[in-house]
Design a protein around this nucleic acid. Structure first.
Length: 510
RNA sequence: GGCCCCAUCGUCUAGCGGUUAGGACACCAGCCUCUCACGUUGGGAACACGGGUUCAAUUCCCGUUGGGGUCACCA
């Protein structure tokens, strides 16, 4: 009962990445689930930078994290650049806090100073391994029972792990998990340079920041028992814990650069929509009946830890693209206004300086056929490029003398149309075709190549309407000029497959 | 190897004792069609194995197998 109440009241959750590179797609999922929970409970989403790995942390990575989260629209309520009552939100700025809290534990006999050097322990570990490759090295407890005094050599602070007993906690997605304490060693809290290790820094901060639920990847599940021991040493109740199943590469290996894009910024640059990225990630390890496509608001509404699965999954780029396509197609998911605004930079990349308001008028022609903003930009290119570019193969195949008469006829019909609208043009052309005893397919491809420069495009009459009368006529005229002086290629030889099929069918005759 | 976790179509998953085991992606075939798409109809495709519990197990329990995580003065 008390637990249910705790879950439904405003949660304080956090996302605590290390600034050691790009923001991994798996990290984004962790951020998303936390963010969803914060929004659903009308709670607080805290961003904390865990930069205690001085070797790997960089200011650039820190910036990438901010940029990525902002692009995804996963806004944080407390954290770097926005502030809050529990700062600072960067661990390297909290060193005095860790020092103070560790002294507290030492004073209470729950932790101790250890002067064993890393070199010594590495050596002991190596010796043991040499004797017995299967052996499990653990800190032997050399300094565990020494009376406390500040040594005159560098020392680390170690946690005094109880020699017996177990840690049991109820994971929000995995249920009850029990680990024996004797499986753990006296792990290090504070390094000799005063910088905390992950488990200590995270617990101190989560406690100090009033975090009520910790959600992270399953690779952290092994950290939970020692962390709970630390919470208890501080006389505190641990927050709720939730672990998320792993996202694996299609091969079943850990997801890495080798298996395609793992950095969110790559998806951004490939023309994915943030809402689509979030949608795919949300459905990975979480489900809501048969629903596949969600807006962000729907995710917030529907999300729950209970509906999270426990099995690891494999990242599927095809399904990801399909979800992305849905978001590109549906106006209620991506309004034309938003679509246009996001498209502008992709047009710019093609050297086309088109305003969002201009794009808003043409987007309807590519909505269903573009899966990404890059594809949309490609699809819209010929509307804005003057002169437009004609594909060589398309030109050679369609802008030829045998098509010239049809193109001329087509041109003169639309030129005389009573009104330059899709419907009127279509009717005019069809009337003409009927009179001529021709079909639209006899002229469509040549006209398409003339107008768009390619063999695949939006509907012919949509193209005419968007292009406008002057440009349409001009493009047709120059195409006709080319066609008239270009001899048609020889007809292709009969297809082998078709011949065989015919032979089979007519075999009884022979 | 120790500790921990997991197990339904190829993939993401629904299922919370009794179902023709459902959906989505992908795949195949058809329809639609001025191209590309979209849309649409249909199809193949799964409960890892072995014991229990039960009138009844995909579902609950145990084991086996398989997979994953982690064993640092990284996070």
């Amino acid at each position: 009962m008390a637990n249910g109440l705790k879950s439904s009241t405003a949660a304080r959750v956090r996302f605590a990445p290390s600034p050691t590179g790009y923001l991994h797609i798996g990290g984004v999922r962790t951020a998303l689930f936390n963010w969803l929970w914060a929004r659903k409970t009308k709670g607080t989403f805290v961003l904390r930078i865990e930069d205690t790995d001085q070797e790997r942390s960089t200011p650039e990575s820190r910036q990438i994290i901010f940029d990525s989260l902002r692009w995804l629209e996963l806004s944080w309520d407390e954290g770097p650049e926005v502030g809050g009552d529990h700062g600072p939100y960067t661990q390297m700025e909290r060193l005095s806090i860790y020092k103070e809290w560790s002294e507290r534990l030492i004073k209470e006999g729950k932790a101790y100073r250890c002067t064993c050097t890393k070199e010594l322990l590495d050596q002991q570990r190596a010796e043991l391994k040499a004797k017995d490759p299967k052996a499990n090295f653990r800190y032997p407890g050399t300094c565990r029972n020494k009376p406390d005094a500040i040594p005159d050599v560098p020392y680390v602070v170690r946690f005094k792990v109880p020699t017996d007993g177990v840690v049991t906690y109820v994971d929000k997605v995995f249920g009850e998990v029990t680990t024996p304490n004797k499986a753990q060693q006296d792990f290090v809290l504070l390094r000799s340079d005063g910088i905390p290790l992950y488990n200590f820094g995270a617990v101190v901060d989560d406690l100090a920041m009033g975090i009520t639920l910790v959600a992270r990847g399953r690779d952290h599940m092994v950290n939970t028992p020692p962390q709970i021991l630390i919470y208890r040493a501080f006389g505190a109740e641990p927050p709720d814990m939730a672990h998320l199943p792993m996202m694996l590469a299609p091969s079943g290996e850990k997801l890495s650069k080798r298996h395609g894009a793992v950095s969110v910024t790559e998806y951004r640059d490939q023309g994915y929509l943030p809402a689509a990225v979030l949608n795919y990630l949300a459905r990975f390890g979480w489900s809501h009946g048969d629903q596949e496509v969600f807006s962000l608001a729907e995710l917030v509404e529907a999300f729950s830890w209970e509906a999270c699965g426990r099995g690891d999954g494999k990242f599927d780029t095809k399904k990801f693209l399909a979800i992305q396509h849905e978001h590109m197609k549906r106006e209620n998911l991506t309004s034309t206004k938003e679509y246009a605004a996001r498209l502008v930079p992709f047009m710019k990349l093609r050297g086309l300086d088109v305003s969002a308001s201009e794009l808003e008028k043409t987007i309807y022609t590519v909505r269903e056929r573009s899966r990404t903003l890059i594809e949309a930009a490609e699809g819209l290119d010929f509307f804005y490029r003057e002169p437009h570019v004609t594909d060589d193969a398309a030109k050679a195949k369609f802008l030829v003398d045998t098509n010239a008469p049809n193109l001329k006829g087509f041109l003169s019909v639309i030129k005389d149309a009573s009104e330059w609208t899709e419907a009127v043009l279509e009717k005019a052309v069809h009337d003409w075709l009927e009179k001529e005893g021709k079909q639209i397919k006899d002229v469509a491809q040549a006209a398409r190549v003339a107008l768009t420069g390619r063999t695949a495009s939006p509907g012919l009459f949509q193209v005419l309407a968007v292009l406008g009368k002057d440009r349409s006529l001009a493009r047709l005229e120059s195409a006709i000029a080319i066609a008239e002086v270009t001899p048609a290629p020889p007809p292709p030889p009969p297809k082998e497959g078709a011949g065989k099929e015919g032979a089979t069918k007519e075999a009884p005759k022979g």
